[in-house]
Design a protein around this nucleic acid. Structure first.
Length: 125
RNA sequence: CGGGCAGGCCGAGACAAUCGCGGGCGCCUUGUAAGCGAAAGCUUGGCGCAUGAGGAAAGUCCGGGCUCCAUAGGACAGGGUGCCGGGCAGUUCCCGGUGAAGGCAACUUUAAGGAAAGUGCAACAGAAAAGAAAACCGCCCCACAAGGGUAAGGAUGAAAAGGCGAGGUAAGAGCUCACCGGCGAUGUGGAGACAUAUCGGCCUUGUAAACCCCACCCGGAGCAACGUCGUGGAGAGGAGUUACCGUGGUCCGCGGGCCUCAGGAGACGGCUUGAACAUUAUAGAGAUAUAUUGUCUAGAUAGAUGAUUGUCAUAUACAGAACCCGGCUUACCGGUCUGCACGGAAA
RNA sequence: GGAGACGUAUCGAAGUGGUCAUAACGGGGCGCACUCGAAAUGCGUUUGCCGGGCAACUGGCACGAGAGUUCGAAUCUCUCCGUCUCCG
């Protein structure tokens, strides 16, 4: 099943408040298992769907840097997607300080964070 | 050759391969990969095709289009602009010229109307700071003082009542004269700003990015505008109709003044073909205009351009559309082209 | 995305063309008094940066930054920078 984006502020806040999290060197990961019958814009969300949000600070990086950071995170997520369990909401946030990291370092960092939350099927690397 | 001045163009470094993203079109699809539907068709999916951020997308400083409020109307208040002519849909923009300032020059800068329409302000210092004024030192008259004359000199100040020279005088003074500057009148040139010549009286500080005067311009709000559909839950029943509400400074004026809905989750529309871009020709000094032919060039909605490998150049700046245009301003690694003046060398 | 407002000592702020901002006034810091000790109160003092001087003291630059108008700008005008508020 495909992934879909988180949209509203309250959805992000729900993940931040009630979900588990892990922090790596470049980013932090928040994860929450959705309850049955969660709705979005009045429609029921498919229980097998993964929902994602990618965040970066515009003040530090500028609009171009923010987009660049989100692209790298999205690409990293795409490579790991098949190993992740369904029915969860994921939020990935780039740390405010430190600029934009190299893709390989970011990708490894994300893998480590998810492994620490016992979400990855099989062994990483 | 050197250091300058002015203007233009390019700018996610380029190419190839494999995976991936956005919207568009086509096919699977006139009975099908899955679902809904009576059907037309719609949603999702797969495959293919072409396409997909900027010169500033930025700041939001101006000007519009568009939408709603009246087809945006009058008065006052308030605000903007300000040499002249032209361009433009329009502007605080652009082009050409005039004056002034800077530079050897190419060239650059310029909110540049009015200070004899009126009012205000000009601290400190100074005798005096704007009156047809004033005597602190000095100078002169007088034997000295008292008194008077005197704005040449000193002193103060950002600024001291046209400048400088000669005559003149007791000493002085536009008191008189030449030149220069300013003002006014007349003539000439120019479309005009203005330039220039002659004559006149002998002159009246600066500040209008202080109030103001004159001329011209400006109704308000913004795509989170606005329109359509509207879940849960809560809400509404009254009869004021010369009230009240709207037009976001005030008054006038204008519109609404009702009937079953209004409405704050959310969804959809608005959303891209336009004062568009490119080519050639003509007119013009130029901005630009006209004609011709051709092109369709992002429309996302938590927000689409990434990853890996290889080769070449070399470590690649500022930086991301959000209703759309035209300007201005600001940020920027570099590359490249054109013209001009100055200095040197050679011929 | 759009519409506004505000930047002055360490903090909150006044000052809106002229005697150096005595950087007013309040808070904070420091010192003294009161107290067994503290709080509160009262009095005094300190409060930017770069220099000069052995010292008492003294010169220049500073009102977010840079230009302009003016004799003179924290104040008026323009362009940037930063912070905050409102509209969904």
């Amino acid at each position: 099943m495909k992934s879909v984006a988180l949209r509203f502020n309250f959805e992000f806040n729900r993940v931040y408040r009630y979900g588990k999290f892990a922090t790596g060197r470049y980013l932090s990961v928040h994860v929450l298992k959705r309850r049955e019958g969660t709705t979005q814009s009045g429609y029921k969300v498919e229980p097998s769907l993964r929902r994602t949000g990618f965040c970066a600070n515009k003040k530090e990086l500028g609009a171009v840097g923010r987009n660049r950071a989100r692209r790298l995170m999205r690409e990293s997520y795409r490579l790991l997607e098949d190993k992740l369990p369904e029915g969860y909401d994921y939020v990935f946030t780039l740390k405010a300080k430190g600029g934009i990291p190299d893709f390989h370092e970011l990708s490894t960092d994300m893998g480590k964070c998810l492994a620490r939350l016992d979400l990855l099927e099989g062994s990483f690397l």
